[in-house]
Amino acid sequence: MVEDRVDSGSTVGRAAEIVGVTVRTLHHWDEIGLATPSQRTPAGYRSYTRDDIDRLHRIVAYRESGLGLDAVREVLDDATAEIGETLRVQRSRLADRIRDLQRLDQRLERLGEAHERGILLSDQEQAETFGSDWDPARSSEARVQWGGSLQWAQFAERSATRSRDEWRVLADAMSVLQMDLGDALDRGVTPGSAEANELAERHRGIFSNFFPLSREMQVCLGRMFESDTGFSAHYDGIRAGLASWFRQIIDESARAHGIDPDAAVWR
């Protein structure tokens, strides 16, 4: 019954239904000369013959394979066109696209994990990278405290692309800085001096690898280093009184740049 209707001519709506596209699509293909109905009714309406429907089916098949309309036209209208070669080229392009999508999927997976875990290293890798006294739970604790902040998002975005070797470089730089801080305290370096300001600036530069750290934000960190029992124990374990001295040199460095450390806020 359907065959009879096709033989006798199909309206645009019926042709669209047969091949599974919209009427608007058929109008477009007609306008660009890709698939023009061979017949018109006495009233002037488009009418698709069996051959027209066959062409539409072929167009749909090649479109679903990923060919553009110009390539489809070439395949259908150019008697010299190598359909097999055209399809091989399309498969090659598709393979490239699949590889791109797979890489994108891997990046999205790592980004999602970084937002959840922070540091994408195993507990053993973290211990080997950051030292035996490092507690991998710190990353989870940081997410609980800061997970909804812009800085956590920035930290996660950078963590997602950071290799173990890059983490080691940052850890080594921070370790050297902390030893230099302890040595400066031993030598009686005064907060506000050029050497003390340089140490504070080194800290801000290293820490900015995790997220952009303004001087006001650094002041807030300095307060936390002194007041938080975990941080103060860490710094005072390097040198007695280092946590307070570190906060002082950060404050004085900020003051040298026109910032009142007493009024500094996290921004």
Score class of each variant (00 low, 15 high):
9 G>Y: 00
180 D>Q: 13
229 T>W: 08
15 A>T: 05
190 T>H: 07
72 V>Q: 03
55 R>W: 06
219 V>W: 02
153 A>L: 12
219 V>L: 07
111 L>V: 09
206 I>P: 00
134 W>Q: 03
235 Y>E: 04
197 N>C: 06
17 E>R: 13
175 S>P: 02
19 V>K: 01
66 G>I: 00
171 A>L: 00
77 D>H: 01
237 G>H: 04
151 Q>G: 12
234 H>M: 07
74 E>Y: 12
66 G>V: 05
139 S>A: 13
133 D>S: 15
263 A>F: 00
10 S>Q: 11
111 L>C: 01
59 I>T: 07
152 W>C: 04
158 R>T: 08
246 F>G: 10
256 A>C: 07
185 L>N: 01
67 L>Y: 13
236 D>F: 06
69 L>F: 01
37 P>N: 08
170 L>A: 14
47 S>D: 08
147 G>D: 03
110 R>Q: 06
101 L>V: 12
172 D>F: 14
105 D>H: 12
19 V>H: 04
9 G>I: 10
14 R>V: 10
6 V>D: 09
102 Q>G: 05
260 D>L: 06
160 A>C: 11
56 L>G: 08
196 A>K: 12
156 A>T: 01
45 Y>R: 15
239 R>V: 03
92 S>L: 10
261 P>Y: 01
146 W>A: 14
236 D>H: 03
151 Q>N: 06
27 H>C: 11
84 G>V: 15
37 P>I: 04
257 H>K: 14
97 R>P: 00
119 I>S: 00
4 D>V: 15
213 L>K: 10
89 V>P: 05
224 M>D: 06
124 Q>P: 04
168 R>N: 08
251 D>L: 05
219 V>Y: 07
71 A>C: 14
54 D>P: 06
54 D>Y: 10
208 S>D: 02
72 V>Y: 00
205 G>R: 15
1 M>N: 13
255 R>Q: 15
123 D>E: 13
75 V>A: 14
39 Q>P: 02
104 L>P: 06
55 R>F: 05
60 V>E: 02
4 D>R: 13
206 I>D: 01
263 A>L: 12
237 G>N: 09
238 I>H: 12
181 L>N: 00
63 R>N: 02
82 E>A: 15
252 E>H: 09
121 L>T: 01
165 D>V: 14
132 S>Q: 08
70 D>A: 13
186 D>P: 12
121 L>Q: 01
174 M>N: 09
265 V>I: 11
245 W>E: 04
231 F>S: 13
226 E>C: 11
235 Y>D: 08
78 D>P: 11
103 R>S: 07
45 Y>S: 10
110 R>G: 00
55 R>Y: 02
137 A>P: 07
252 E>C: 10
233 A>I: 02
260 D>T: 04
158 R>S: 03
212 P>R: 00
77 D>A: 10
187 R>F: 11
122 S>A: 03
63 R>M: 00
126 Q>A: 01
87 L>R: 08
198 E>I: 03
170 L>V: 11
